[in-house]
Design a protein around this nucleic acid. Structure first.
Length: 432
RNA sequence: GGAGAGGUGCCCGAGUGGUUUAAGGGAACAGUCUUGAAAACUGUCGUGUCAGCAAUGGUACCGCGAGUUCGAAUCUCGCCCUCUCCGCCA
């Protein structure tokens, strides 16, 4: 949620920003409700003041009949005002929640994702002296993926991952957890990127995979609900990204500034209904209802938020480089960064089997937009209480990154080269 | 699933209808003392919201939501969560 005081003083900018992000919300209507609500609030406060005066004048003694009659009259009027106030507040809050976060000034303005900007391309695409196959063709040959039986058991967009591919997944997990929890590695990453940031390591974390409605909504990641799995009997949702359960974990908490930045690297299975994607990316495991992901999440002061975002992007690049994968960095335009985001970067790894770059990573900077509803705050050293800034970013989406490893490292006979950094976690094996 | 106990501020904790503007303790911060520190003593110390340049004032908040009452942390109802025991279980 945006700060209403900011909206009051920057109405035109906020309206323009909403339009650039593709959200149809009337700021003038919001401000009218804001005014109405405040007037009703004032009146209610006055009546409550009167009520409190009458009540406190009776301390110790029995109230007189006139005092009781007066109290009743106040009560009567107050209940009417409160009814109106409730309606006004609902209209106001409903509109306020629809207002998207302000995009950073360096986010390109665009109406479709085609207007995302290619920031850079890194790494040489591998050359093959045979026609490279896609990951699914190789995986079928090696018996690494079984979608037929998965569809019998769970339906489309599910898979059994088997054999060496499972070992590869756990190797990647180990590598990432070890790298991000190592201060020396973090120092290397930050200094390579020229970033002056805290070197506090990431805490590895296994979060719950289910989340309550109110916190999901406060994270502003519940919509569109069509893409979420709901457990009706328990009023719980299956999370669609570890961000959802990591970002919400410190709701209603106040940190000391010395505790920040607070960094987590979470491993979680994520669930997406992929509503409206029928027939898209049906081959292999590129787009699944269920996939495992390593996710970075952090809480910082407002002063450090942007640098934290840049650090996350640097970590993503470091990890892609470590796996020797060619990739490109995309600066997402206003319409593509997402409602709570101030800035968003995508990484796309090269997939020779598709002859395309495909999205494997995203990095999101939410400023204080999520923290406002979560009430996650920091007590600054000078005593001020401020909202924290939240960042999240993919470390690796396991399915997609294994696709990239398979397709880039493939050989004619169907074996796959193992990136050097992963070999220690695979018993020294250089190929699968 | 059954039975019971509980949820109060940064933490602990008192509080069973009207000086609760939430006692007391701890932590934190400031000061006195000290060469310095500790201890002791003194003081400060919740959040949201509205009005105001500010000082300040109003109001709301004791897990969440309804209700009873002139008046609710306190009484009633519903829900959520935590703990203990039993049952089940990886």
């Amino acid at each position: 949620m945006l700060d209403i005081r900011f909206i009051r003083t920057h109405a035109d900018e906020v309206q323009k920003n909403a339009k650039h992000k593709g959200y149809d919300v009337s700021i003038s209507e919001l401000l009218e409700w804001d005014k109405t609500k405040r007037q009703l609030q004032q009146r209610a406060d006055e009546l409550r003041e009167k009520r409190n005066e009458i009540a406190s004048s009776m301390k110790g003694g029995k109230p007189s009949d006139t005092a009781i009659a007066e109290g009743k009259a106040v009560k009567e009027e107050l209940s009417q005002v409160e009814l109106k106030l409730k309606d006004a507040d609902e209209a106001y809050t409903g509109l306020l929640k629809q207002v998207p976060n302000m995009a950073s000034s360096d986010v390109p303005i665009g109406a479709t994702e085609d207007e995302n900007v290619l920031a850079k391309t890194v790494g040489d695409k591998p050359k093959f002296d045979f026609a490279p196959r896609n990951h699914y063709e190789i995986a079928e040959q090696r018996d690494w993926i079984d979608k037929e039986r998965a569809s019998k058991v769970a339906g489309s967009r599910f898979a059994y991952i088997k054999g060496d591919l499972v070992k590869l997944q756990f190797a990647i997990i180990q590598y990432v957890i070890n790298t991000l929890s190592d201060e020396a590695k973090l120092k290397e990453i930050a200094s390579r990127a020229g970033l002056d940031v805290s070197l506090r390591p990431f805490t590895p974390i296994l979060p719950p995979l289910m989340i309550r409605t109110d916190l999901y909504d406060a994270m502003d990641r519940l919509e569109p609900r069509d893409d979420r799995y709901k457990l009706e009997d328990d009023d719980l949702w299956l999370q669609g990204s570890a961000e959802h359960v990591l970002g919400s974990m410190h709701a209603d908490e106040i940190f000391d500034e010395s505790q920040l930045p607070l960094r987590y690297v979470g491993y979680a299975t994520s669930f997406r209904r992929e509503a409206g994607t029928y027939g898209k990316d049906m081959e292999g495991i590129l787009r699944m209802h269920q996939f495992d992901k390593l996710e970075m999440e952090s809480f910082t002061t407002g002063d450090d938020g942007l640098n934290e975002h840049l650090l996350f992007v640097a970590v993503q690049e470091y990890l892609l480089n470590a796996l020797e994968l060619p990739y490109q960095v995309i600066q997402k335009c206003t319409v593509d960064i997402g409602k709570p985001n101030a800035r968003g970067i995508d990484m796309e790894a090269w997939l020779p089997g598709q002859d395309k770059y495909r999205e494997t990573h995203t990095a999101d900077y939410m400023t204080d937009y999520q923290a406002r509803r979560l009430k996650t705050r920091v007590r600054r050293e000078n005593g001020d209480l401020e909202l924290v800034h939240t960042n999240d970013a993919t470390a690796f989406a396991l399915g997609r990154i294994m696709i990239a490893i398979i397709e880039n490292g493939q050989r004619k006979d169907g074996t796959v080269a193992v990136p050097a950094v992963l070999q220690p976690y695979l018993g020294g094996r250089t190929q699968l």
